[in-house]
Nucleic acid binder design. Structure first.
Length: 391
DNA sequence: GATCCACGGGAATACACGGATG
DNA sequence: CATCCGTGTATTCCCGTGGATC
């Protein structure tokens, strides 16, 4: 039994119903330390990184698969584990394995959602392997790069670098990534992680291995839901049938499954109920849009874009009937300029985080407006956004 | 003084429509 | 009839400025 989860559940002292201990474990945007039942993928990953146990770097690689298949979950868990054992050599992998390392290896994870620009990319990388903080201002990208080279030359260390969420609308285009990679020292081996088929991306021109991730199998996803529910909810709140229903609906996508569970939970909690009913679940399915965008993408947006979205999800449908109207309404709720809000809304639509649905032509003069539809479940965003800011 | 980037603003372009024009 | 034009709205594109920090 997970003691931490049990304690967390007991610690609820909020006004909320007793149903929910903490929402975070239900968040589709956070990963757990020990991803459940991704044994196959973990094996494949370990095969790939195997040379590190002898102190060598594996060749560049590409990990790919659909949304919600556990790519990020496994990569972040594995990398933090490996890095922890490097930095904290008590429970050393080296002592338990064959030979002493040829050299020090570091394991760095960079999310291109959060570190999009070239500057941000190198900053994140350098910052991860440096003790003292790396300046964010007054320093050029070029300086950053040369510091990275110097640092690695000096220590003789090698880096295995995971670069997550490549090929998404907001992150740098693949050819720009190739440029960045080629600017890395030879003592860095990278593992790109994305959804694009290996045949469709230039990245695989540089990799020796492409590792494929399949969607969660049905019963594995059921397990995952039950486990997350166990760490967030009172026991019995989610029965197995309900988990099966959600897993069926989600079709192997853990993100959407968790999003639905989250919405259903929220609905039950609002009604002050102790268990999640079929109607909660049915309602949740309605609330998760088709082709739902990953909430991780939403929460990786710059602060003020999130502010705009936070206001947007509180608007009446009537206030979302056109970009112009929504802009004015959001301006009332925030202190951003209308010009900025409008541009943000168009940019968010451009990257698929909100959808612009063109109104039918209705005889009015001028180009018809378009309605704004969030492509993520508003409830989940609202709740997690508010939780994050209140503390 | 240098650097990056968020913000703000505005110009240019696209689209829809009705009416005028050739 | 096909095309062009004017008006009104929506959308895209671009760039200068300034904040924050070194």
């Amino acid at each position: 039994m997970d003691i931490e989860a049990m304690i967390r559940r007991r610690k609820r002292q909020d006004d909320e119903s007793r149903l929910v201990g903490a929402y975070e474990p239900l968040s589709p945007a956070t990963h757990v330390e020990e991803p459940t039942d991704r044994g196959r993928l973990l094996e494949a990953m370990l095969d790939h990184v195997d040379p590190v146990f002898d102190g060598h770097l594996p060749p560049h690689g590409y990990l790919y698969g659909p949304k919600g298949a556990g790519k990020s979950a496994v990569v972040t868990a594995l990398f933090s584990q490996l890095e922890r054992q490097t930095v904290n050599p008590d429970t050393d992998i080296y002592t338990t394995t064959r030979v002493r390392p040829a050299r020090l290896l570091r394991f760095v994870y960079v999310d291109t959602r959060r570190h999009t620009s070239e500057f941000a990319f190198f900053h994140a990388l350098l910052d991860a392997i440096t003790d003292e903080a790396v300046p964010r201002h007054g320093i050029s990208t070029e300086t950053l790069r040369s510091r990275l080279h110097r640092q690695l030359d000096a220590t003789g260390a090698g880096i295995l670098l995971a670069v997550d969420h490549v090929g998404e609308p907001v992150s740098a285009p693949a050819d720009a990534l190739v440029d960045r990679f080629s600017a890395l020292p030879s003592s860095v081996s990278w593992l790109a992680v994305g959804r694009t088929d290996p045949a469709e991306t230039v990245l695989t021109d540089y990799t020796a291995a492409a590792i494929r991730v399949d969607p969660y199998r049905h019963h594995v996803l059921v397990d995952l839901l039950l486990r997350r529910a166990a760490s967030a909810l009172d026991s019995g709140a989610l029965d197995e049938d309900a988990a099966v229903t959600i897993a069926d609906w989600a079709g192997g996508d853990a993100h959407d499954a968790l999003a639905a569970l989250f919405v259903a939970t929220d609905r039950a909690a609002r009604a002050d109920r102790q268990t999640i009913t079929d109607r909660d679940i049915a309602a949740a399915f309605q609330a998760v849009p088709p082709d739902c965008v990953a909430l991780g993408r939403v929460f990786a947006l710059p602060e003020n874009k999130q502010t705009v979205l936070r206001a947007l999800v509180d608007l009446d449908p009537a206030e979302r009937e056109s970009v112009t109207v929504a802009t004015a309404a959001v301006a009332d709720l925030t202190d951003l300029a209308e010009g900025t809000i409008k541009r943000y809304l168009y940019e968010l639509a451009d990257v698929g985080i909100v959808d612009r649905v063109q109104a039918p032509e209705d005889g009015e003069s001028g180009r018809p407006p378009s309605r704004l539809e969030p492509k993520f479940p508003p409830t989940v965003f609202r709740r997690l956004y508010d939780i994050e800011r209140e503390s």
